[in-house]
Design a protein around this nucleic acid. Structure first.
Lengths: 203, 203
DNA sequence: GTCTATAAAGTGATAGAC
DNA sequence: GTCTATCACTTTATAGAC
C-alpha cells in the first residue's frame, strides 16, 4: 500500500476524469480527453498518476470506502429490519446525489473491472453488500416485517439493482429531491403499486 | 433504406459479434476480436459488413423490431391494466432469456448510442415504451387497480429500469427459469415485500 | 507542474489476389 | 468468402527540458 499525495490539483484532475468517465465510459475516455478538459497536455497527467487505470482505481476506492463506512454506521445503530433497510436505501440514494460520477462509473463498469486482479476489492464490497441486504431481509422475514414467501436471494438482487440503476436518470440539482425519490422508491418496494394483494402464482 | 442480404454466414458472424459486444462492451471489442472468434481475418469481415457500427446497428434494429412487435400484440389483446402490465413484464423477461446478448448491449450502450443520428430510432423506441407503460399505469390508477398516490412518471422509470437490469445477472439455462423470475418480480412490484402497509411519508 | 517530442502498440478500414 | 498486405490514425505512456 503506497501513500497517495492528496494535493488540490490531484483532486481537481480526478474530479475532471470522473466526470468524463461517467459521461462517456472508461474505454471511450482517452487520457487526451482528460488533459484537454483540464487545460493541460496528456503527458502532464503522468506527473500526477501512474496510468489511466490508477485514476479509475482511486476514484472507486475512495467512493466505496466512504459508502461502506456509512453502511457500517447504520448497522451499528441496531435498528429493526425495516428501519435498517430504509436507512440503507436512503444512504444509497444520497450517494447517487452527492457522488454521481463515482456511482455512475461503479454502476456501469464495476462488473468488468472486477475481473482484473487490481480491482478485486470490488468483488469483496459486492459480497459485503449482499450479506448486508440478505441479513436485513432474513431478519425481516423472521420477525414478520417482510413476507414469509419472499425469495431472499432474488429480492436482494432486486433491491441492489433498483437502487443503483437510479443513477442513470437521477440528476443532482433537478426538480425532484433525492429524499422524495428515496421515499417513493421505498413505498413501491415495501408496499407495491397495486391496491390489493393477489395470490402468489406458483409454477 | 438498403436491403440487407440475410445469409447464414452473416447471421453467424452477427451472433459472434453480439456475444462479444455483450461480454466486453462495444468499445472494448475490436473487429480483430470478432474475426478471431469467427476464425477469419479482420479484413474479411468487411465483405459482410460496412463497419463495426453497422453490426451494432443491425443487432439492435432486429432486436427492437421483434420486441416491440410483441408489445403491440399484447396491447392489441385489450386486457386490463394489471394483465397488460404482467404480459409486458413477462415478454420483457422472455427477451432477456431468448435474446440475452442483444438485451445486454441495449441495456449498457443504448443511452450513449442514442446520441448519434444513426441510432435515433433508439430514442423513438424509448418514447414508445414510456408511453406504453405510462398509459398502463394511468389507466390502472383510474380504475383503482393501482394506488391513487402513485407517481406515474417515477413508477414508470422504476419499472423500466428494474425489468431490463435483470439481464446483468440472469443467465439463460440456469437453475431459475425465466417464468419464475418474472412472477417473483411481479409479486414484489405489485404487492411489495412487507407484510403490512405503512403510511406514505410526505415531504 | 507543465511542455516538447516521440516511442510502441493497437485500431478501423481498404485494395486487390486467390 | 477469405487472405495478403498495408494505410492512416489513435492511444497509452515515457524521457528530459523548462
Amino acid at each position: 500500500m503506497t501513500a497517495i499525495p492528496a494535493t488540490d490539483r490531484r483532486a481537481e484532475l480526478l474530479a475532471i476524469a470522473a466526470r468524463l468517465f461517467a459521461e462517456r465510459g472508461l474505454r471511450a475516455t482517452t487520457v487526451r480527453d482528460i488533459a484537454d478538459a483540464a487545460g493541460i497536455l496528456s503527458g502532464s497527467l503522468y506527473h500526477h498518476f501512474d496510468s489511466k487505470e490508477s485514476m479509475v482505481d482511486e476514484i472507486l476506492t475512495e467512493f466505496l470506502d466512504a459508502l461502506f463506512g456509512r453502511y457500517q454506521e447504520i448497522v451499528a445503530q441496531g435498528l429493526g429490519p425495516r428501519d435498517t433497510l430504509e436507512a440503507v436505501v436512503i444512504a444509497s440514494f444520497e450517494a447517487i446525489d452527492q457522488r454521481h460520477d463515482a456511482v455512475a462509473i461503479y454502476q456501469s463498469e464495476a462488473r468488468r473491472l472486477a475481473q482484473h486482479a487490481r480491482f478485486a476489492y470490488i468483488t469483496e464490497r459486492w459480497t459485503e453488500f449482499r450479506e448486508l441486504l440478505q441479513t436485513i431481509l432474513r431478519e425481516g422475514v423472521a420477525d414478520a416485517t417482510f413476507r414469509a414467501d419472499l425469495d431472499v436471494s432474488l429480492a436482494y438482487r432486486f433491491l441492489r439493482d433498483t437502487v443503483w440503476v437510479g443513477v442513470g436518470w437521477y440528476r443532482p440539482g433537478g426538480t425532484m429531491g433525492v429524499d422524495v425519490v428515496a421515499q417513493q422508491y421505498l413505498s413501491i418496494v415495501l408496499d407495491g403499486i397495486s391496491t390489493r394483494r393477489r395470490p402468489v402464482k406458483r409454477t
